[in-house]
């Protein structure tokens, strides 16, 4: 029992920073259609996972399925398929890969790991909720963008019913998080506070921790980049992010490093 573990540990130790692809298995990443279907929150989650995989130097094949949400075991997107295993959503994927020996945060000290987790929670807790709110609770966005895109793969009665059901579901989720009574301006304030905290944390470093990217960088990049580039009914969110120069530089740096070399990750 101990020998394979020891060997694995030795292997992990030898690979100092996951430069070579470690997972020999065929890895597939499933998401919804990017052009006419996917919405801001899912888009962000998918970009986060893609960035993370790029950072780990793990090759993957992107599969777009219009029913990806129904395929996912937890209804969350994206999900990856590694051999027989299917893992969905960002955090479980990161955890699973770290069990396989692919980790970006292995060298952090205990206190740094605590901070890493804290900032990840902050990003999820604020930016993700804000994205859900904008996508599903802002009347104009819901009517002009969300319902049309979400219902696009289905034919008539479903194209109305499914977006409505999803809206109810997101509404319940936001209510449980205490966000249902917020006004749109309060949401913008939350986003601003979160961006300010991230900007203060980042200062002029290249990455949040040490001199190399971690999963936090992947997550923050995905959120900020999508806030900047996704077409919404109002450009307020992008304007908030644009106030913070160092965050803008951070996004550009990661985009150039991981997304300009082509591969499967071109984003619009």
């Amino acid at each position: 029992m101990a020998t394979p573990l020891v060997r694995q540990a030795a292997e992990i130790h030898n690979r100092s920073r996951g430069d070579q692809p470690i997972i020999a298995e065929y890895l597939e990443l499933y998401q919804q259609n990017e052009v006419d279907q996917i919405l801001l929150p899912e888009q962000t989650q998918c970009l986060a996972v893609k960035t993370f995989l790029h950072m780990c130097n793990v090759k993957f094949h992107l599969k777009m399925r219009s029913n990806a949400e129904q395929m996912s075991p937890s209804k969350g997107l994206p999900f990856i398929k590694m051999g027989p295993q299917i893992i969905s959503e960002f955090e479980p994927i990161v955890e699973h890969l770290s069990l396989k020996g692919v980790s970006l945060s292995g060298e952090l000290s205990g206190s740094q790991r605590a901070l890493l987790k804290a900032y990840m929670s902050l990003t999820v807790n604020r930016l993700h909720l804000a994205e859900l709110y904008i996508t599903w609770c802002d009347k104009l966005t819901v009517e002009e963008i969300t319902k049309i895109r979400y219902g696009s793969p289905y034919s008539w009665p479903l194209t109305r019913i499914l977006p409505w059901l999803k809206q109810q579901e997101v509404g319940r989720y936001l209510e449980a998080q205490g966000w249902n009574n917020k006004t749109i301006d309060q949401v913008y304030t939350e986003v601003d506070m979160c961006c300010k905290a991230l900007s203060d944390k980042l200062e002029d470093q290249y990455y949040f921790f040490l001199d190399r990217p971690t999963e936090l960088d992947a997550l923050v990049f995905a959120h900020l980049y999508n806030l900047l580039t996704t077409e919404l009914t109002s450009a307020k969110l992008a304007d908030i992010v644009k106030k913070y120069d160092n965050l803008m530089r951070f996004c550009e740096r990661i985009r150039q490093r991981y997304f300009l070399e082509g591969e499967d990750g071109e984003d619009g």
Partner: peptide, 12 residues
Amino acid sequence: QQRADILAFKAL
């Protein structure tokens, strides 16, 4: 930065 940490721990 410390104030940012407070916000992050609150979220955590």
